[in-house]
Amino acid sequence: MGGLVSKFLQRWTVFAGLVVVWQLLGWFADDPFFPPPSKILTAAYEWWVVEPSNFTEHIVPSVTRLLSGWAIACVIGVSLGLLLGRSERAMEYAGPLLVFLRSIPPPALVPVFLLLFKAGTSMQLATIVFGVVWPVLLNSVDGARSVDVTKVDTSAVFQIPRWQWVLGVVLPAASPKIFAGLRVSLSLSLVLMVISELVGTDNGIGSQLMQAQREFDYTRMWAGIVLLGVLGYGLNTALLAVERRALAWQPRSRDEQHA
């Protein structure tokens, strides 16, 4: 128990210390660009709690778009990735194309999506999906390739049905790699959600950030940035919890994440 407490203190002391220093500096310097945390929190409270409509009209749609875009990308990425990963031939055809498509900065396609889908949710979803599908896809390919020969042979000898081969062998064998891809994609989704909202929409966290900038309201801008940080932290933590559950079968689970 003592160990836990000291771990907790170790982890949060420096964080809390920095916040306090920032607070003090903010008071003394009184720089409009760097409002102290207390002011940022007050602004956030007034913005989203006092006026719940701001919460439901901006934050909720943003998060919904983020999660649905990510979910679509996951389904496409995992299914296509497993398919390509189990066929060397298919990967030879698709490989170079995938490398190129992955290298395209997704915001560069925003104008194309704008014309194809018109401004709105489907355009934003297209941007998110195109931007985040690659880590999932490529990691799924890698994972599907990593099924070792003995498992392939074992499955062949016991003549298991096709669905069991895909869902019972390839998918679980690939799942550690897939989860690594899912995590990268989730944090990318946040970036692309903001990008897709900076143009061609008037709701969402991204558009509120832009609005705050136009109104020179730096405190609100900071509130938006902090909110995105909290959101990213929360989403990552939640996914890690799911991952730890799903991969509990692994002989040595690696707690340290690296992207």
Partner: peptide
């Protein structure tokens, strides 16, 4: 880390 760099664009 999770603060997207694009969110810092306005700032």
């Amino acid at each position: 880390r999770p603060i997207p760099s694009v969110a810092l664009i306005p700032l």
